Simulated scan of single mutants.
Amino acid sequence: MNVALWIVTGLLAAVYLAGGVFKMAVPRAKIAAAGRSGRWVEDFGAGAVKAIGAVEVLAAVGLVLPAVLDIAPVFVPLAAVGLVLLMAGAAAVRARRREYGLVVVDAVYVLLAAFVVWGRLGPESFLN
């Protein structure tokens, strides 16, 4: 179970680190032009898109660094809770925009982050 949690955590961290850096570095108009998965930025200002990117980067760091350094590892499940909330919001935006195929992708991310929350607060808790 611990290995599965580390794999999922590592994958989530990599995806959110890359996505967050992308959102912070690339102009909003270029993200919107990137294809159907980037059109959500039309509903947000440039500052909000950058802020979402910053939250994703912080979540990616919070998923891995506290456990690796063994400094306040309770932040790992808290970062995962943050991702659950972030992706639930993303799914709501996509549903409002009638992008139902992407809602499914967002739901998968919610489930993966929820798995980390459950595992790190339950059977493989860092709090013991």
Results as ranks from 00 to 15, higher is better:
Gly10His: 15
Leu63Trp: 06
Gly122Asp: 13
Leu5Ile: 13
Val57Lys: 07
Gly20Asn: 13
Val8Pro: 14
Val3Asp: 13
Arg98Pro: 02
Phe75Asp: 00
Trp40Val: 09
Gly38Tyr: 14
Ile7Val: 15
Val55Ile: 03
Ile7Leu: 15
Val84Glu: 05
Val61Glu: 03
Val55Asn: 00
Val74Ala: 07
Arg39Cys: 01
Leu5Asp: 12
Glu56Thr: 03
Lys50Ala: 10
Ser37Asn: 09
Glu56Met: 04
Ala51Leu: 12
Val3Pro: 06
Arg94Glu: 01
Gly82Ile: 12
Met24Gly: 15
Ala107Ser: 11
Val105Cys: 01
Ile7Asp: 09
Glu42Ser: 04
Arg94Asn: 02
Arg28Gln: 12
Val110Met: 10
Val117Arg: 10
Ala34Gly: 15
Gly47Lys: 07
Pro66Cys: 00
Gly38Thr: 14
Ala72Asn: 07
Ala113Glu: 00
Pro73Arg: 03
Gly101Ile: 05
Ile31Cys: 08
Gly19Phe: 03
Val26Ser: 05
Ala51Ser: 08
Gly62Trp: 04
Leu69Gln: 11
Ala59His: 03
Arg28Cys: 13
Val93Thr: 09
Val15Leu: 11
Leu83Thr: 03
Val26Glu: 01
Leu5Asn: 12
Ala90Cys: 01
Ala46Ser: 15
Val41Leu: 08
Leu5Pro: 08
Val41His: 06
Leu17Glu: 09
Leu121Gln: 01
Ala34Asn: 14
Met87Cys: 07
Lys50Thr: 08
Val108Glu: 10
Met1Asn: 10
Phe44Ser: 00
Val61Thr: 05
Pro73Asn: 05
Ala18Val: 15
Pro27Lys: 00
Gly35Pro: 13
Ala46His: 10
